[in-house]
């Protein structure tokens, strides 16, 4: 199927926070209570529509264990969006966010859009991290924030789509150099490969842009 743009995402966060379940819910609309452990990476893809345009999302879902970090890092570079996930019922997964974020910022392109996700919002009774804390963290680090439940599907669509909207807006503003695939964005085959103005001006703005 043809598409206007292809965005590459990466999903990161501690083991067991529900990264693969979020992906499965988004791509297959299913929930699997116990998911196979991700070894290395998993991959998923789905088409969405933004502003009347077909956008293909290619999503790399990474393993949580530190032993895989060196692998995870190689996926940052080509990603336009990242979902940084923690588990609202496990405080330590929230505490590790700073490390993840440093890692992401260090290895990605500076325009990568990062969405912070507090997953497992269906387990209200076991909650250990308040929603306000997630919001505060996101605000402090310039991230978008959402609480989701891969189980009930609450906010899952929104999380992936809002991230795409943000990337799309940045493209419109010329922040991304869409001709450089290392930014995690590819123009679809149906589109004329170059709009002579966009890429150049994009690069210029990109340098000053920074992330949020």
């Amino acid at each position: 199927m043809s598409y206007a743009y292809l965005f590459k995402y990466i999903i990161i966060g501690d083991t067991g926070v529900g990264k693969s379940c979020l992906l499965l819910q988004f791509t297959d609309k299913r929930f699997q209570p116990v998911h196979d452990l991700t070894i290395g990476v998993e991959f998923g893809a789905r088409m969405i529509t933004i502003d009347g345009k077909q956008i293909k999302l290619q999503i790399w879902d990474t393993a949580g264990q530190e032993a895989f970090r060196s692998i995870t890092r190689s996926y940052y570079r080509g990603a336009a969006g990242a979902l940084l996930v923690y588990d609202i019922t496990r405080r330590e997964t929230f505490n590790h966010l700073t490390t993840w974020l440093e890692d992401a910022r260090q290895h990605s392109n500076s325009n990568m859009v990062i969405m912070l996700i507090g997953n497992k919002s269906d387990l209200e009774t076991r909650r250990e991290v308040k929603k306000e804390e997630g919001e505060a963290f996101a605000h402090e680090h310039g991230l978008i924030f959402m609480e989701t439940s891969a189980k009930t599907a609450a906010n899952v669509e929104e999380a992936f789509i809002n991230t795409a909207k943000e990337i799309y807006e940045k493209i419109q503003e010329g922040v991304f150099d869409i001709n450089n695939e290392a930014n995690g964005i590819k123009i679809g085959p149906q589109h004329s490969p170059t709009n002579p103005n966009l890429p150049q001006s994009g690069q210029g703005a990109g340098q000053g842009g920074g992330c949020c």
Partner: peptide
């Protein structure tokens, strides 16, 4: 243990 409980779900 965290991983073992997820063996072949």
């Amino acid at each position: 243990r965290q991983d073992v409980v997820r063996t072949f779900p």
